[in-house]
């Protein structure tokens, strides 16, 4: 049986067609083949959340999804949502609150928080914590991260300003 497979998908708005090894993880495909190194590789077994990317509009673990599985799918990475400006306010809030320390978890945090901003715009601190519980920050900068998400939620409610 063939240990490679052909995939054709859309990554950050661009069509991609590739032959990939069946065992290649989505996050490794994005990083190594497409040079989209914003998605990070941490624990590689679904615990840390550093590899969080969007698959057909929802966040997934890039290390628990095979590149082979995204045939026909739409992928968005931190590079994509940055380029569209979708998370500009969130990133600004991260910067203002110094919520990115070493920065390793930051892309995953932003991708997760971006989903929270859309699925639960009324989230309080407890819900933000709960939603981000699947993303490790080993600088332990959680308070600042939650502050940044809280600021962004408030800003969006008040019509887009985060300041």
């Amino acid at each position: 049986m063939d240990e490679t497979t052909v995939i054709s998908c859309t990554v950050n708005g661009e069509a991609v067609e590739e032959i990939v090894p069946a065992r290649l993880n989505l996050v490794d495909f994005l990083r190594e083949k497409l040079d989209l190194t914003g998605s990070h590789v941490g624990c590689e077994h679904g615990v840390c959340g550093a590899c969080t990317v969007r698959l057909d509009g929802v966040i997934v673990r890039g290390c628990l999804t095979l590149a082979a599985q995204v045939n026909g799918a739409t992928i968005e990475t931190i590079e994509g949502v940055t380029a569209t400006g979708e998370v500009a306010d969130l990133q600004e809030a991260f910067l203002a609150r110094n919520a990115a320390q070493c920065g390793f978890c930051t892309p995953g945090m932003v991708m997760s928080a971006a989903e929270l901003l859309t699925v639960n715009p009324d989230a309080g601190r407890a819900e933000i914590r709960d939603f981000l519980s699947g993303n490790y920050c080993r600088c332990t900068g959680y308070q600042a991260i939650i502050d940044a998400v809280e600021t962004t939620l408030a800003g969006r409610k008040n019509g887009g300003s985060t300041t």
Partner: peptide, 25 residues
């Protein structure tokens, strides 16, 4: 975003975690 579309036949350079297997959709 500009991607490298170049097909790389040398899979040895791509990190893989899982042991090799075939895949059927």
């Amino acid at each position: 975003v500009r991607y490298r579309y170049v097909h790389q036949p040398n899979w040895g350079k791509i990190p893989v975690k899982a042991p090799p297997f075939a895949y059927v959709r």
